[in-house]
């Protein structure tokens, strides 16, 4: 049947309404969160006439809860909300910084974490490497129930994901680690990053790195963990110089993406500088106190 009861923008009042609408409209509808990606479709010359299932009224998806065990962030939380709510938590700093320095103030006020991670075409997302580095899991809901998934698994299947499911929450385990996010933009600020990096580490005896998760975005089409580097830094003191030296030996894991803003070689070339920046931030802010 052609005639649907849905207007071209449907304000769902709750999750079920949204899921039902997505199921009924199938390919002719997509979820709408902060709209900052979707509304630029005409500029990308996308002409599909799709119904927007607006999630913004679903209050339950907006909340951020942080306790001793985990931080649970609703998919509709905006970058601004996240930066504010996570401020002061050393282990969550990578996400707070990624959210607090991306884009520009008005966009941070509008764009959501759900939208940031669900946009498959967007290689330079800041929140994605942060979530990878913080070992976040996603909660995904469909009409047939909910499940959770690791970021890595989600990213792998993202491009072909069914639009009938919704990302509802991000769950980040709390740890004793410290983390940070570093990004390089061609201007001082306001651009998409040409490369970004999130680091989360734990220090063991003698201030040596005992555990590390590091993720890199924008360098390739999809952000990923930098596993060779993670392994190589275990047992070292986290000095920026040392870390940068090690990073230089671990670059073969990446195949730099050539795009209009920067060639692939440049993204790789600047990555080690980002490593140094990230570790000096870690040193200055958090580790400094501990050491």
């Amino acid at each position: 049947m052609d005639i649907t009861p849905y207007p071209k923008l449907f304000l769902a009042n709750d999750l079920n309404e949204a899921l039902r609408a997505l199921r009924e409209l199938a390919d002719s509808a997509i979820p709408l969160a902060g709209a900052t990606w979707v509304m630029r479709a005409p500029l990308r010359c996308e002409t599909a006439d799709r119904t927007l299932i607006d999630l913004s009224r679903i209050e339950a998806l907006r909340t951020i809860n942080i306790d001793q065990q985990e931080a649970v962030i609703g998919a509709l939380a905006t970058h601004e909300q996240i930066a504010n709510a996570l401020n002061g938590y050393n282990d969550l700093a990578a996400l707070a910084q990624a959210a607090g320095h991306s884009a520009n103030p008005a966009i941070r006020r509008m764009a959501t974490i759900g939208g940031n991670i669900c946009t498959a075409e967007f290689a330079a997302a800041d929140l994605v490497p942060a979530l990878l580095a913080l070992d976040a899991r996603l909660e995904i809901e469909g009409l047939d129930g909910s499940r959770t998934q690791t970021m890595a698994a989600f990213l792998e299947a993202r491009a072909t994901r069914a639009h009938t499911d919704l990302v509802t929450r991000l769950i980040i385990p709390r740890t004793q680690r410290t983390s940070t996010h570093a990004r390089l933009t061609l201007r001082k600020a306001g651009d998409y990053p040409v490369a970004n990096l999130s680091v989360s580490i734990a220090l063991g005896a003698g201030g040596k790195i005992s555990a590390a998760t590091v993720a890199v975005g924008a360098v390739e089409a999809v952000a990923k963990r930098w596993t060779g580097f993670e392994e190589a830094i275990i047992g070292h003191a986290p000095s920026p110089e040392k870390m940068q030296m090690i990073a230089k030996t671990c670059l073969e894991e990446f195949d730099g993406r050539d795009a209009m803003d920067a060639p692939g070689w440049y993204r790789l070339r600047v990555l080690t500088g980002l490593v140094a920046n990230a570790f000096s931030t870690l040193q200055e802010t958090t580790l400094g106190r501990a050491m």
């Binding site: 207007p7 923008l9 709209a35 900052t36 509304m39 927007l52 884009a103 008005a106 006020r109 509008m110």
Partner: peptide
Amino acid sequence: GFCGACMVHVDGAPMASCLLPVGS
């Protein structure tokens, strides 16, 4: 979303009105 010439306040907060679908 880059230039800010379309900035309005929605419920008191500045937002880029070029990216806000009116239905929302």
